[in-house]
């Protein structure tokens, strides 16, 4: 994902814009990271440079929790404990 995309990304559920970006790894593009919606508390992973911004019913709880485990030290407590649609609590 290129940073410029932040100009137009919005939460697919509550429509809030802009979103907050946390970058974990970056080469030419942001490789892994997370997008946070400040309004509804949803988080969206960036995996292999692609932001994954699916509605709740199309997300995979196991994969999402695995992502949270993997990047635990880099994620805000709010996401780990109360992030939507899945958290580690």
């Amino acid at each position: 994902m290129k940073r410029r995309l932040m100009d137009i990304l919005a939460c697919p559920i509550c429509k809030s814009h802009p979103l907050e970006l946390i970058v974990f790894t970056e080469k030419d593009e942001i490789d892994e990271g997370v997008l946070l919606c400040g309004r509804c508390g949803r988080w969206y992973p960036i995996i292999e440079t692609i932001p994954r911004m699916l509605p709740d019913d199309l997300r995979d709880a196991t994969e999402d929790r695995g992502f949270l485990e993997k990047w635990k030290p880099h994620l805000p407590e709010g996401v780990l404990k109360g992030g939507k649609p899945f958290s580690l609590e």
Partner: peptide, 8 residues
């Protein structure tokens, strides 16, 4: 990766 019905 997203759904047309819920554009991101």
């Amino acid at each position: 990766e997203g759904d047309a019905g819920h554009p991101p």
